[in-house]
Computed example of a mutant assay.
Amino acid sequence: MTNSLPLKGIRIIAVEQYGAGPYGSMYLADMGAEVIKIENPKIGGDVSRQTGPFFLGENDSYFFQTFNLNKKSITLNLKSEEGRAVFEKLVKTADAVTNNLRGDQPEKLGITYEALKHINPKIVCGHLSAYGRDNDRASWPGYDYLMQAEAGLMSLTGEPGQAPARFGVSMVDFMTGAVASLGLTAALLGAHRSGVGSDVDVSLFDVALHQLSYPATWYLNQGHVVERVARSAHPATVPCQLYKTQDSFVFLMAMTDKFWQVLMDILDDEVLKAQRFAKVADRRENRDLLTQEIDRVLGKHPTAYWLEVLKGKIPCAPVYDLPQAMNNPYIRDTGMVQKVPHPHNADMEILANPIKVNGQRLVGKASVTMGENTQELLSELGYDEQAIAGLKQRQAI
């Protein structure tokens, strides 16, 4: 499997930390790229190594492992003259340099295409920042939750009449990391064809705003404002929301006339078969009444009963909490939980990459200790043991 990975032979230097950048570059590492993570020895490396509350020995954490599988680590101080020299030698051997620094930092650090093209004309430079590098917010720090707030996503999340709510996890970070890895891969393909590299920019804010998708299109063209609907319902299609069963909730999505008819055959209730619910527009107009009637029918049995009756016929799902989601047999049957041995936990488990290649899950390897590959990489670049010791003494590595 390792030899057939699509990005095998691609070398990527990653100047990154915490979430969005490492999440995106981990996709590239999982797909076979040699991702070399640069960690500043003066600050203890990636800050997420110290992100608790759960740790794995010294200067490592489960949080860090979540975003850094399959990568190498080199300690390097890019602000020192000797550290910069090492970096430039690495650039000569690399296909891409990626970072998730503040928008004004890549130029200051000299990790843009303009700064590196004389070293390697094919180098692709990926920049993931909060607000981009070409506007008056370039120097602003920024995080996922801020983007959810300003881009309008929080206003669409939660129940009507309640305070706006954020997503349960940092989805803007993860989406931006994935988009950044897509952009970098596309630019790599272009550079391999043309021999000329480029800068590729992605920002948290732009990706968050882009996730507004069709509500944004509706507003821009028709002035229509999508608002929150009770029970996490779809703004336009009915039925598509949470419904009450005898003991909990089920999310039901009979979004087409075909699925509606199948649902009617299964539920076999005369009130639901009434003309007022016959068409998509009718169901939308009578949403509240329809919710009451579906609740009434589903309330006759527990969720487990309805899932058994509806599975494979109507799009539906239980509403699990985190333990239930993690203990769902389906995710282990499909290989989405993977054992990744770690020196401090031989049975460490991680969620697997969702991409399959030739029907096979991508294999995860635990992230290494900070700087574990420094000696190996410096030796490859021509540094002998004495030179490496000198670099370490002078805090360049």
Rank of each mutant, 00 (worst) to 15 (best):
I10W: 04
I13S: 01
I13R: 09
V15S: 08
E16C: 00
A29M: 10
M31S: 10
E34G: 00
E34I: 06
V35M: 07
I36K: 05
G44D: 02
G45D: 01
S48P: 01
S48Y: 14
R49M: 03
N59L: 11
E82T: 15
A85S: 13
N99L: 04
R102F: 08
D104T: 04
L109N: 05
I111K: 04
A115K: 15
A115Y: 06
K117Y: 02
I123A: 06
D134T: 13
D136Q: 11
R137G: 00
Y143D: 01
Y143K: 00
Y145W: 12
L146A: 06
Q148V: 07
E150Q: 09
A151T: 15
L153I: 14
P160T: 08
G168R: 02
F174Y: 11
G183Q: 05
L188I: 14
L188Y: 09
H192K: 15
V202Q: 05
D206M: 15
Q211K: 09
S213V: 13
N221L: 05
A236I: 08
K244I: 06
V250L: 14
M255V: 14
D257P: 00
W260Y: 10
L263I: 07
K273C: 10
L289H: 11
K300N: 13
P302T: 15
T303D: 00
Y305P: 01
V309F: 03
L310D: 04
I314V: 12
P318M: 06
M326W: 13
I331C: 03
D333H: 15
G335K: 14
V337L: 13
P354T: 11
N358E: 15
R361M: 00
G364H: 10
E380R: 12
L381P: 06
G382Y: 11
D384A: 01
R394Y: 06
